[in-house]
Amino acid sequence: MKATIFVLNGPNLNMLGQREPEIYGADTLADVKKRCATKAAALGLEIDFRQSNHEGDLVSWLQEARDAASGVVLNAAGYTHTSVAIRDAVLACEKPVIEVHLSNPYSREEFRQHSFISDVAAGVICGLAGKGYELALDALADICGVSDT
């Protein structure tokens, strides 16, 4: 049975390719999902790819990951900088979580430079656009003992 990785995406990521492409790139969320599916297949992983603009959905999905996933790729988007609830859900899921950001928040506005998630995540990847998701899947394959890469 293949390990399942939840790939969870927060608010406004459904607007990728349309919203501020100079910051977030030209790829759509469908493009990111396709890249993740290709990478996961190469690593022998299954992915469950989801997006919501609602904080509670992300919290519920992180809770679900506790029993249904081997790890999580999380782009909490704007909630990264505001949500103690998502931070608590990351801790409660008791699975490795890789925090991903398409842009580099440390080169942006000061309020984006604080993450409530980073210090409880297994790792953080930022500033590499959609490639960051693929690198997160590589990392989770290693952490979960699925790959020797």
Rank of each mutant, 00 (worst) to 15 (best):
M1T: 10
M1L: 12
M1N: 13
A3G: 01
A3P: 03
I5V: 14
F6I: 01
V7Y: 03
P11G: 02
L13Q: 12
N14L: 04
M15K: 12
G17I: 09
G17R: 01
Q18A: 14
Q18W: 10
R19H: 09
E22Q: 14
E22M: 02
I23M: 00
D27K: 14
D27R: 08
T28Q: 10
L29W: 00
D31H: 11
K33C: 13
K34C: 12
K34M: 14
K34G: 07
K39C: 13
K39Q: 14
A41W: 04
I47E: 03
D48R: 13
D48K: 10
Q51S: 01
Q51N: 09
S52M: 03
N53Q: 06
H54F: 08
H54K: 08
Q63F: 12
D67R: 13
S70I: 00
G71M: 00
V73W: 00
V73K: 05
V73A: 05
A77D: 05
A77T: 09
G78M: 07
T80F: 02
H81N: 06
A85P: 06
I86G: 13
R87D: 09
D88V: 06
D88Y: 07
D88K: 02
L91T: 07
A92M: 11
C93Y: 03
K95Q: 04
V97S: 00
I98K: 02
V100H: 06
H101F: 11
S103F: 11
N104V: 03
P105N: 01
R108G: 04
F111T: 05
Q113A: 08
H114T: 11
F116I: 04
S118E: 05
S118L: 10
V120F: 06
V120N: 13
A121P: 08
V124T: 15
I125Y: 01
C126I: 03
G127R: 04
L128S: 10
G130A: 15
Y133H: 06
E134C: 14
E134F: 10
A139Q: 13
A141W: 02
I143K: 02
D148C: 14
D148K: 15
